[in-house]
Simulated scan of single mutants.
Amino acid sequence: MQKTLFELVNEVQDEESFIVFLSALSKDRQACPDEWQHDSIESFLEAAADWSQESVNGLTHYEKPDNSWKRCAQIMYMGKFYE
């Protein structure tokens, strides 16, 4: 059974698992472009940066992880959705 992006982002702990997540994120963009809020790399990166600024101290339903690899994966993941 293939893992979802959400499962993979939550499993990121180190460089190796971060690379696995990035590969899955890329495949998700190719397979499901209609699920992405952003059509360009510029808007995707802007959304990821905006969400990272918004969540730098955590959010109501989000606790910022201590693990930098996981935080980076979460930032990239949220670039898919954040407006």
Rank of each mutant, 00 (worst) to 15 (best):
E63I: 13
W36V: 04
W36F: 03
H38T: 07
N67A: 06
K70M: 15
A31Q: 13
S55N: 08
H61R: 08
S68G: 06
W51M: 00
A47R: 01
D66S: 05
W36G: 01
C72P: 00
S26D: 09
C72K: 12
H61F: 13
H61P: 00
H61L: 10
D34A: 13
D66L: 13
S68R: 13
K64W: 02
W51S: 02
W69Y: 15
A31R: 14
C32R: 06
N67D: 14
K27Y: 03
A48N: 05
E63V: 09
Q53C: 06
Y62F: 15
F44Y: 15
A31S: 14
Q53L: 08
A49L: 13
K70C: 10
E35C: 00
E54P: 00
K70E: 15
K27V: 02
W69C: 00
K70P: 00
C32F: 12
L59N: 03
A73C: 05
E46D: 04
T60V: 12
N67L: 09
G58V: 07
D50N: 15
E35D: 05
E42F: 14
S40E: 04
W36I: 02
P65S: 09
L45S: 05
D34E: 13
G58Y: 13
G58F: 10
F44R: 09
A73F: 10
S52E: 13
N57D: 15
D39A: 12
N67I: 05
W36D: 01
S55L: 04
E54C: 04
S43I: 06
S40K: 12
C72A: 15
A47M: 10
F44Q: 07
A49H: 10
S52L: 10
L45A: 06
R71F: 09
D39W: 12
S55W: 07
K27M: 12
I41N: 05
A48G: 08
Q74D: 13
D50Q: 09
E42I: 12
D34N: 11
S52M: 07
V56A: 14
A31N: 14
Q53E: 14
R71P: 00
D39F: 08
I41L: 14
P65D: 15
P33M: 15
R29C: 08
C32S: 05
S40M: 10
A47T: 03
H61Q: 07
S43M: 10
H38I: 06
E54M: 11
H38V: 13
E63L: 08
R29E: 08
A49E: 10
D28V: 00
P65F: 09
Q74L: 15
E42M: 05
A31L: 14
H38C: 09
W51A: 06
Q53M: 06
S26H: 07
A48C: 03
P65C: 13
E46M: 02
A49F: 08
N57Q: 09
Q74V: 02
D66R: 05
L45E: 09
W36N: 03
A48L: 02
K27N: 12
E63R: 11
Q53N: 11
W69I: 03
D66K: 12
D28P: 00
E46P: 00
P33E: 11
Q53S: 11
C32L: 06
R71E: 14
L59H: 01
Q53T: 06
Q74A: 04
Q74T: 06
V56Y: 07
A47I: 02
T60H: 11
T60W: 08
T60E: 15
Y62S: 01
K27L: 09
C72F: 02
V56W: 02
Q74K: 04
K70T: 04
S26G: 02
T60Y: 08
I41M: 14
D34R: 04
